[in-house]
Amino acid sequence: MNYFRTFTKGLIKENPVLVMLLGTCPTLAVTTLAMNGLGMGAATTFVLVCSNVVISLLKNFIPKQVRLPSFIVIIAGFVTFVSFMLRSNFPELYEALGVFLSLITVNCIILGRAEMFASKNNVCASFLDGLGMGLGFTLALILIGAIREVLGSGTFFGLSIGDWFQPIGFFSSPAGGFFVFGCVIALVNVLSNYKMSSKKIGCASCPNASACGQAEKGEVAE
Protein backbone atom coordinates (compact mmCIF):
# COMPACT_ATOMS: atom_id res chain seq x y z
CA MET A 1 0.00 0.00 0.00
CA ASN A 2 1.49 3.27 -1.15
CA TYR A 3 0.49 5.84 1.48
CA PHE A 4 1.36 8.83 -0.67
CA ARG A 5 -0.87 7.61 -3.46
CA THR A 6 -3.64 6.82 -0.97
CA PHE A 7 -3.57 10.46 0.05
CA THR A 8 -3.22 12.12 -3.37
CA LYS A 9 -5.71 10.05 -5.34
CA GLY A 10 -8.63 11.95 -3.79
CA LEU A 11 -7.33 15.32 -4.95
CA ILE A 12 -7.71 14.90 -8.73
CA LYS A 13 -7.61 11.35 -10.06
CA GLU A 14 -10.44 10.01 -7.88
CA ASN A 15 -11.82 13.37 -6.80
CA PRO A 16 -15.12 12.52 -5.09
CA VAL A 17 -17.09 15.41 -6.60
CA LEU A 18 -15.51 16.00 -9.98
CA VAL A 19 -14.65 12.44 -11.03
CA MET A 20 -16.86 10.11 -8.98
CA LEU A 21 -19.76 12.62 -8.95
CA LEU A 22 -20.65 11.88 -5.34
CA GLY A 23 -22.03 14.48 -2.94
CA THR A 24 -23.47 16.58 -5.76
CA CYS A 25 -26.37 17.89 -3.66
CA PRO A 26 -24.35 19.87 -1.08
CA THR A 27 -21.91 20.84 -3.82
CA LEU A 28 -24.59 22.64 -5.79
CA ALA A 29 -26.47 23.96 -2.79
CA VAL A 30 -23.82 25.68 -0.70
CA THR A 31 -21.38 26.94 -3.33
CA THR A 32 -22.94 30.35 -3.90
CA LEU A 33 -20.02 31.80 -1.93
CA ALA A 34 -16.43 30.52 -1.73
CA MET A 35 -16.51 30.87 2.06
CA ASN A 36 -19.51 28.52 2.34
CA GLY A 37 -17.69 26.02 0.12
CA LEU A 38 -14.70 26.16 2.44
CA GLY A 39 -16.87 25.74 5.55
CA MET A 40 -18.81 22.83 4.09
CA GLY A 41 -15.60 21.22 2.85
CA ALA A 42 -13.90 21.58 6.22
CA ALA A 43 -16.89 20.14 8.09
CA THR A 44 -17.13 17.20 5.69
CA THR A 45 -13.37 16.56 5.84
CA PHE A 46 -13.49 16.47 9.63
CA VAL A 47 -16.37 13.97 9.62
CA LEU A 48 -14.74 11.90 6.88
CA VAL A 49 -11.37 11.63 8.65
CA CYS A 50 -12.92 10.86 12.06
CA SER A 51 -15.39 8.30 10.75
CA ASN A 52 -12.74 6.62 8.58
CA VAL A 53 -10.40 6.26 11.57
CA VAL A 54 -13.07 4.98 13.96
CA ILE A 55 -14.54 2.57 11.42
CA SER A 56 -11.10 1.27 10.55
CA LEU A 57 -10.41 0.68 14.26
CA LEU A 58 -13.71 -1.12 14.71
CA LYS A 59 -13.65 -3.10 11.47
CA ASN A 60 -13.06 -6.43 13.24
CA PHE A 61 -15.54 -5.65 16.01
CA ILE A 62 -18.52 -4.83 13.77
CA PRO A 63 -20.25 -7.93 12.34
CA LYS A 64 -21.00 -7.58 8.67
CA GLN A 65 -24.79 -7.93 9.07
CA VAL A 66 -24.97 -4.62 10.93
CA ARG A 67 -22.07 -2.78 9.33
CA LEU A 68 -24.18 -0.20 7.46
CA PRO A 69 -26.31 0.83 10.47
CA SER A 70 -23.18 0.92 12.62
CA PHE A 71 -21.34 3.11 10.10
CA ILE A 72 -24.29 5.48 9.84
CA VAL A 73 -24.60 5.81 13.63
CA ILE A 74 -20.90 6.66 13.90
CA ILE A 75 -21.06 9.12 11.00
CA ALA A 76 -24.23 10.75 12.35
CA GLY A 77 -22.52 11.11 15.73
CA PHE A 78 -19.63 13.04 14.23
CA VAL A 79 -21.95 15.19 12.09
CA THR A 80 -24.02 16.13 15.14
CA PHE A 81 -20.80 16.96 16.99
CA VAL A 82 -19.69 19.25 14.16
CA SER A 83 -23.08 20.98 14.03
CA PHE A 84 -22.94 21.61 17.81
CA MET A 85 -19.47 23.10 17.45
CA LEU A 86 -20.40 25.31 14.50
CA ARG A 87 -23.59 26.43 16.18
CA SER A 88 -21.87 27.59 19.34
CA ASN A 89 -18.68 28.96 17.72
CA PHE A 90 -19.53 29.98 14.14
CA PRO A 91 -23.26 30.82 14.11
CA GLU A 92 -23.05 32.63 10.76
CA LEU A 93 -21.54 29.66 8.98
CA TYR A 94 -24.07 27.42 10.75
CA GLU A 95 -26.89 29.54 9.32
CA ALA A 96 -25.35 29.59 5.85
CA LEU A 97 -24.93 25.81 5.63
CA GLY A 98 -28.39 25.24 7.07
CA VAL A 99 -29.88 21.82 6.50
CA PHE A 100 -26.91 20.69 4.41
CA LEU A 101 -24.83 20.46 7.55
CA SER A 102 -27.01 17.69 9.01
CA LEU A 103 -27.20 16.12 5.58
CA ILE A 104 -23.45 15.41 5.68
CA THR A 105 -24.62 12.23 7.41
CA VAL A 106 -26.07 10.90 4.19
CA ASN A 107 -23.35 12.33 1.97
CA CYS A 108 -22.47 9.30 -0.09
CA ILE A 109 -18.78 10.24 -0.11
CA ILE A 110 -18.53 9.41 3.58
CA LEU A 111 -20.46 6.15 3.61
CA GLY A 112 -18.73 5.26 0.35
CA ARG A 113 -15.26 5.64 1.85
CA ALA A 114 -16.33 3.79 5.01
CA GLU A 115 -17.69 0.87 3.05
CA MET A 116 -15.10 0.72 0.28
CA PHE A 117 -11.93 1.75 2.07
CA ALA A 118 -11.97 2.15 5.87
CA SER A 119 -13.63 -1.19 6.55
CA LYS A 120 -10.88 -2.99 4.62
CA ASN A 121 -7.72 -1.03 5.40
CA ASN A 122 -5.61 -0.11 8.43
CA VAL A 123 -6.03 3.06 10.47
CA CYS A 124 -3.16 4.98 8.92
CA ALA A 125 -4.27 4.36 5.34
CA SER A 126 -7.88 5.16 6.27
CA PHE A 127 -6.82 8.43 7.84
CA LEU A 128 -4.91 9.45 4.72
CA ASP A 129 -7.72 8.32 2.46
CA GLY A 130 -10.24 10.39 4.44
CA LEU A 131 -7.96 13.41 4.45
CA GLY A 132 -7.26 13.17 0.71
CA MET A 133 -10.90 12.67 -0.22
CA GLY A 134 -11.96 15.45 2.16
CA LEU A 135 -9.43 17.87 0.69
CA GLY A 136 -10.48 16.90 -2.82
CA PHE A 137 -14.09 17.65 -1.87
CA THR A 138 -13.07 20.95 -0.24
CA LEU A 139 -10.97 22.05 -3.22
CA ALA A 140 -13.81 21.28 -5.61
CA LEU A 141 -16.27 23.25 -3.46
CA ILE A 142 -13.94 26.24 -3.11
CA LEU A 143 -13.27 26.24 -6.85
CA ILE A 144 -16.96 26.12 -7.77
CA GLY A 145 -17.82 28.55 -4.97
CA ALA A 146 -15.15 31.03 -6.04
CA ILE A 147 -16.24 30.98 -9.70
CA ARG A 148 -19.88 31.44 -8.73
CA GLU A 149 -19.10 34.15 -6.19
CA VAL A 150 -16.87 36.17 -8.54
CA LEU A 151 -19.29 35.99 -11.49
CA GLY A 152 -22.52 36.01 -9.49
CA SER A 153 -21.86 38.66 -6.87
CA GLY A 154 -18.60 40.32 -7.88
CA THR A 155 -16.76 39.39 -4.70
CA PHE A 156 -14.05 36.89 -3.77
CA PHE A 157 -14.20 35.49 -0.23
CA GLY A 158 -16.35 38.51 0.63
CA LEU A 159 -13.92 41.07 -0.83
CA SER A 160 -15.22 43.20 -3.70
CA ILE A 161 -13.31 42.82 -6.94
CA GLY A 162 -14.21 46.37 -7.99
CA ASP A 163 -17.11 48.36 -9.36
CA TRP A 164 -16.12 47.83 -12.99
CA PHE A 165 -17.65 44.36 -12.91
CA GLN A 166 -21.40 43.99 -13.22
CA PRO A 167 -22.34 40.77 -11.32
CA ILE A 168 -24.29 38.18 -13.30
CA GLY A 169 -27.05 36.99 -10.98
CA PHE A 170 -27.48 33.75 -12.93
CA PHE A 171 -24.35 32.29 -11.37
CA SER A 172 -25.80 32.61 -7.87
CA SER A 173 -28.90 30.68 -8.88
CA PRO A 174 -29.15 26.85 -8.86
CA ALA A 175 -29.07 26.76 -12.66
CA GLY A 176 -25.77 28.65 -12.64
CA GLY A 177 -24.51 26.11 -10.14
CA PHE A 178 -25.17 23.25 -12.53
CA PHE A 179 -23.53 25.20 -15.35
CA VAL A 180 -20.33 25.90 -13.39
CA PHE A 181 -20.30 22.34 -12.02
CA GLY A 182 -20.43 20.92 -15.55
CA CYS A 183 -17.68 23.23 -16.80
CA VAL A 184 -15.38 22.31 -13.90
CA ILE A 185 -15.97 18.56 -14.47
CA ALA A 186 -15.10 19.04 -18.14
CA LEU A 187 -11.95 20.93 -17.18
CA VAL A 188 -10.85 18.21 -14.77
CA ASN A 189 -11.47 15.53 -17.40
CA VAL A 190 -9.27 17.42 -19.84
CA LEU A 191 -6.54 17.88 -17.24
CA SER A 192 -6.55 14.24 -16.16
CA ASN A 193 -6.72 12.98 -19.78
CA TYR A 194 -9.76 10.92 -18.94
CA LYS A 195 -10.75 8.93 -22.02
CA MET A 196 -14.15 7.34 -21.96
CA SER A 197 -13.54 5.28 -25.06
CA SER A 198 -10.19 3.84 -24.01
CA LYS A 199 -11.81 1.29 -21.70
CA LYS A 200 -14.95 -0.75 -21.97
CA ILE A 201 -17.80 0.68 -19.94
CA GLY A 202 -18.22 -1.45 -16.85
CA CYS A 203 -16.89 -2.11 -13.40
CA ALA A 204 -13.24 -2.14 -14.48
CA SER A 205 -13.35 1.41 -15.84
CA CYS A 206 -14.96 2.82 -12.67
CA PRO A 207 -12.75 5.24 -10.71
CA ASN A 208 -13.55 3.16 -7.61
CA ALA A 209 -12.36 -0.09 -9.16
CA SER A 210 -9.12 -0.22 -7.16
CA ALA A 211 -10.93 0.06 -3.82
CA CYS A 212 -13.97 -1.99 -4.75
CA GLY A 213 -12.46 -5.44 -5.02
CA GLN A 214 -15.47 -6.66 -6.99
CA ALA A 215 -14.40 -5.06 -10.24
CA GLU A 216 -13.18 -8.31 -11.82
CA LYS A 217 -16.53 -9.92 -11.15
CA GLY A 218 -18.50 -7.01 -12.64
CA GLU A 219 -20.06 -7.33 -16.01
CA VAL A 220 -19.03 -5.29 -18.99
CA ALA A 221 -21.91 -3.39 -20.50
CA GLU A 222 -22.63 -3.86 -24.16
Binding site: V66, S70, F81
Partner: peptide, 19 residues
Protein backbone atom coordinates in the same frame (compact mmCIF):
# COMPACT_ATOMS: atom_id res chain seq x y z
CA UNK B 1 -24.70 -8.13 15.74
CA UNK B 2 -27.56 -6.80 17.89
CA UNK B 3 -25.30 -6.31 20.88
CA UNK B 4 -22.63 -4.55 18.82
CA UNK B 5 -25.16 -2.16 17.30
CA UNK B 6 -26.64 -1.42 20.74
CA UNK B 7 -23.20 -0.76 22.21
CA UNK B 8 -22.23 1.61 19.38
CA UNK B 9 -25.55 3.48 19.53
CA UNK B 10 -25.49 3.91 23.30
CA UNK B 11 -21.87 5.03 23.22
CA UNK B 12 -22.43 7.59 20.47
CA UNK B 13 -25.62 8.82 22.15
CA UNK B 14 -23.88 9.28 25.50
CA UNK B 15 -20.96 11.16 24.00
CA UNK B 16 -23.33 13.48 22.12
CA UNK B 17 -25.37 14.15 25.27
CA UNK B 18 -22.18 15.22 27.03
CA UNK B 19 -21.13 17.46 24.12
Amino acid sequence: PTLVLIIISVLVGTLLAVT
